[in-house]
Design a protein around this nucleic acid. Structure first.
Lengths: 189, 189, 189, 189
DNA sequence: AAATAACCGAGACGGTACGTCAAGTCTTGAG
DNA sequence: CTCAAGACTTGACGTACCGTCTCGGTTATTT
């Protein structure tokens, strides 16, 4: 019973968290700043989330998911190029923040790390598995584990490039990834 | 002029940093703890490294590099299995800490982030490029860009599995990576 | 109009306040604790009392007043000893909490401080003035202002001993107060 | 070894505490305000004093002690009047703040309450015992315990008047206290 | 009998201050 | 000039209460 929680507060808090996360990254994100930008009191935030890590996890969980591009034409390569380009954009835009949170929080709270990994896995699945099946043209002969291979390799190479190499995923890279890595793998030996 | 720096202090500081980084991760690593474990005063640390991020970068830079396994037999698959297994072990052991530091520090200090990326790239190159050439048996027909492809895909998939999936790189995974991904790629279409 | 206030709540709230005041003192007394112990909601308390200070004032106002001992015998000294012993007990038991509340609240709310002083004065008068007149044996020659002097000096010395010295008012002290201070004063020069 | 504490900080902190204590009283005194006014960081305060109560105790301990008036003439009554007037002023000015701190802190920390009582007793002794002996003219016949009686009764009645009655100690009151209470007591029965 | 109005519990809310922790800087004394 | 020790400023942490504000639900009158 009692006064119900104000769902408007939830939205404001998570939105503020996401925007600050994007602007400053996990470590530079302060609860006081979240409170300030959202207009909520610190108490209100801590009533909902045990600590900063839990807040960030919830914020990332809450963020709106972009929908993958529809595979217009029937050409497999064209469809893959579009899908990979979109995937690279998504990862560059959103995943980095969560990865930072994951690294920062994973040592101190393994339970939370697992939660963040669950979100990451779910999102990557949504961005790779079903979209790939749509992207496959009819009549193509692909390896039986094509979808799994795509889901395993494509995000891995993209994340690695963005994070470790620190380079953008431009058109040249997308073509390289599709032509030199993904298509050979999917078509099998 | 003046009292020369005690090089013993350098070693003690970097060793303490590495061990604490492994134990607690970047964020939970405190300069006070480094000072305590190394027996050095905080002043001594800050005289050498501008801040925590620089210290961690130096510590990772300083860590001893394991030597890749010698490719004993002439069988390409066997050599690849050994190389990938060793690579996975290296990444699981050492790279995670640095990745955490990279994520934490990259927003606040892009210069440092670039420095860490340089170290990461150099290490990954040392762990993939030359070892792969040794691992290639004589008389094998490989794709012309085989070494680059290996260096691009193998660490990416391993890091992704360890960090995002949070799973160990056991023997089954190594075989899967070699047989289903690397060998097809290296042998070309 | 509307539902009348539940007088049972009044009693529960004030009783809880008094007991918590005795246990923890004014500053450590929290409204949440009063609500918890009394079973009343915070709203119910604040509907009755503007703030913590007002609540404490009401609680002290409401506390049951002990009746002074009847002066059985006609001996002035014996009567005084009994009266002072009883007075010391009353002060030690009840007055300290109110004094704490007075100190804490007097700066922020002079009106309330005045209210608490009114209660204190009234209670001290009830404990000194009339009881003393009864305690006076017939035929004693006392100073004309004996009652006022007693009311001024006896509580002052007792409170000072309890609060400032932090010592109990044992039998030895009561005898000292009566024999060395009060009797000489009351009998005049 | 190490950097010694900055005694300038000590003085600044205690001065700020005293002035804020006088302005706002114990409860309204905030550590943040002390930090702000003194220019010291909160950490610096907490390094020296365990909590607010300890800080206030130290501040009161540190305050400068006024010197009692010299008994110029040889008239006992005149000397007493001057001494009591000065004593009343001291109590009104300084003791109230400490009494508030005593009340607020005594429940939560008996050790601290004892410390504050020690200070209070020491100060009252300094304000009553020796000054009284000086105030006594030569050749006066006083009760053997005159000094002790004065120290017990005078501060008690003054404090009681200021705190409980909430009235000023004007000239009329000082005369009343000396003529009707103190002189009869000191001269003995 | 229905409508009204105030009550009550529970508990969320915006605040203020608490006492703690770590980062990075500064100061002392010794070598 | 270096080093160990440790005090210093700064700023965020997560907690505890304050006094206010909804809620759903409960009595009593008043129509």
């Amino acid at each position: 019973m009692g006064r119900p929680r104000d769902t408007g507060r939830d939205v404001a808090i998570l939105d503020a968290t996401l925007s600050l996360l994007t602007e400053f990254g996990y470590e530079q994100l302060s609860m006081e700043a979240v409170a300030g930008r959202s207009g909520a009191a610190k108490t209100t935030i801590y009533r909902r989330y045990r600590d900063k890590a839990a807040l960030v996890a919830a914020a990332v969980e809450h963020r709106s998911h972009a929908t993958p591009p529809e595979s217009a034409a029937g050409d497999l390569r064209e469809n893959l190029l579009a899908l990979v380009a979109w995937l690279a954009q998504q990862i560059a835009d959103q995943e980095i923040g969560l990865l930072g949170a994951l690294f920062a929080g994973m040592r101190s709270d393994p339970r939370l790390a697992e939660e963040m990994r669950r979100i990451l896995r779910r999102d990557e699945a949504a961005m790779t598995d079903q979209p790939l099946r749509k992207a496959i043209g009819h009549g193509e002969h692909l390896a039986p584990q094509a979808a799994e291979l795509f889901a395993e390799v494509a995000p891995a190479v993209i994340v690695h490039r963005v994070v470790v190499a620190g380079e953008r995923c431009d058109e040249r890279f997308v073509e390289h990834l599709v032509d030199d890595i993904l298509l050979p793998l999917l078509r099998g030996r």
